[in-house]
Each structure stands twice: as C-alpha cells, then as structure tokens.
C-alpha cells in the first residue's frame, strides 16, 4: 500500500516537473503568438540569454533569485529592442516573421558560440532534496513548479485586472478599433513582445542551475514550447495551461513506460492527433464552445 502511494507520489512529481517545464518554456511564446499571431523563432535564444545572465550574476556573488529576475529583465529589454528594430515590420507577413526571427536565432546562437565558447558549467542546484521511502525529490523542482504557477497567476492578474491587460485584450480582439479608441497598439505590441521575451528569460534563469549552459541550449526548449503552443492555441490561460497539464501527463507516462525519447515522441504523436481533431488548439475549442 505505501509502495503504491510512493509510486503515485513519484508519478505526480514527474507530472508536476514536466508541467512546470512546459508552462515556463511555452508561456513567452504563447503570449507573443496570442497577441500578434507570429511565432518567435528566436524564443530559444531568449531562454539561453536568461540562463547566461543569471549564471554570470550568481557567479559574481548575487543570490540566485536576483540573478533570475535580472536575467528575465535583460531578455525582456532585448526582446523590445528586437521588436522595435525588426519584428514590427512583419505583423502583416506572419510567415516572413517566422523566417526573419529564425535568421536572428541563427545569428544569436552562432555569435554566442564565437563570443562565449561552447559550454559553461552551471552554478549547481540549490536546496537539496527530501526522501520518501525509496524515492527522493529535489526541492528545487518544487520551486520551479511554484514559479510556473506564479507565472500563470501573474499573467491572469495582468491580463484581467490591469489597464494594460484591458488594452492588450482589446488589441488582440480588434486592433483597428482599439487604436481608434486611443490604445497605442504599437506600444502594446512592443510591451507584449518584451513580456514574452522576459518570460523566456525567466525560464532560462530558473533552469540555469540544473543545466550545462551552451549557446545552443535554447534548442532543448523549443520543441516542447512549440508543441505546447500548437496544442494550447492562442491563449495562455485557457490554452497553454491546460495543454501543459495534459501533455505533462502524457509525457510522464510515456517516459515512465519507455524512457525519455519516447516521452518526446509521445508529445509529437499527441500533437498530430490534436491538430487533426482540434485545429485551433484547446483555447480555440473552448472559445467556440462558450460562444
């Protein structure tokens, strides 16, 4: 009986771990997609950026949470710069926006390889672990889950309770009308892109202690984040969050049964099925059911 409880606990822990990863990896991408309808192919590079800034600051002696926040802010500022210089020219050409951010991603990755070299060791995971029976759980993983939930709650409050949120949602639903009412939609776009980039940076910072840092590390996040956005659809709260939960269960189950790689393949098979059944993802489906 206790063995079963521990086993269940271990599975729940796995699910929570994957859930946190998917929410953090995909949140920034989903926000940008939901608002502007474009996919930021340089998403992984903002994650990388957050991880490097965090690690550099922690090595310089700052506490980890400060490093993570600074990493997120730095990525956010870079995101706004990228939006102002390049991305904003492509809002009516979504496919070209994919191509151009892809080019930026290539430049950033290879440029970083030239400047930073191939790998940095991580600063190490804080907090340690607790044991239950034969299982032990790293406490830092629970912190990640808390951060992921915090991000979702924060986004809910931001979009539902603030003036920025009201303006942002109006812009999402009808940009021309929002503009005619005085909403500075271009600024909203820049801020949203910055927010998306900052969330990517946050993900990078949070995961930095657990990973070996390399300029190509962002690639390790993009498949999962793409999959989550495809399954979730255009809305973070009604799409990304439930999609992350469902995908987390599928991935944890596939991983437990057949190993890591099949966890990933399980995700892809799920995507193929979901796009066949719900082409607009969870949030599109929910929206149509409610309307």
């Amino acid at each position: 009986m206790t063995a079963f409880v521990y086993q269940f606990l271990a599975f729940a822990y796995q699910v929570a771990d994957v859930f946190a990863f998917l929410v953090l990896a995909a949140g920034g991408l989903a926000i940008i997609f939901g608002m502007m309808g474009i996919i930021n192919m340089a998403h992984g590079e903002f994650i990388t950026c957050g991880a490097y800034v965090t690690t550099a600051l922690v090595r310089a002696g700052l506490p980890l949470p400060v490093g993570i926040v600074m990493g997120a802010l730095f990525a956010g500022v870079l995101g706004i710069a990228l939006e102002r210089t390049i991305v904003r020219r492509f809002y009516n050409r979504p496919i070209d926006s994919l191509v151009v951010t892809w080019g930026v991603s290539l430049i950033a990755t290879q440029g970083a390889l030239l400047v930073l070299g191939s790998a940095w060791t991580s600063v190490g995971t804080p907090l340690g672990s607790i044991g239950f029976g034969d299982y032990s759980f790293a406490l830092y993983r629970l912190v990640m889950l808390a951060v992921a939930i915090g991000v979702l709650v924060g986004l809910y409050l931001l979009f539902m309770k603030t003036r920025f949120g009201v303006h942002a949602r109006a812009t999402m639903q009808n940009p021309a009308m929002a503009r005619a009412l005085g909403v500075p939609t271009e600024r909203i776009y820049a801020q949203t892109f910055g927010l998306g980039a900052a969330l990517a940076g946050l993900a990078g910072g949070v995961y930095a202690p657990t990973l070996t840092l390399s300029p190509t590390m962002g690639t390790g996040f993009v498949v999962e984040s793409f999959v989550t956005v495809v399954v979730g659809g255009a809305d973070v709260l009604t799409g990304t969050a439930p999609a992350s939960a469902v995908l987390a269960i599928i991935r944890a189950a596939c991983t437990a049964a057949w190993g890591q790689v099949f966890g990933l393949i399980g995700l892809l098979v799920t995507v193929c099925i979901v796009i066949r059944v719900l082409p607009e993802g969870f949030s599109g489906w929910l929206m149509r059911r409610r309307a």
Partner: peptide, 15 residues
Amino acid sequence: EVFPRMTVEENLRVG
C-alpha cells in the same frame, strides 16, 4: 465593433 470576449465594463475601460 465592440470587443466580443470582454465584459461591458471592460469595453468601457478600453475607452
């Protein structure tokens, strides 16, 4: 051209 997925109050706040 009201914002369909926002409440009446939120629509007014956009103004």
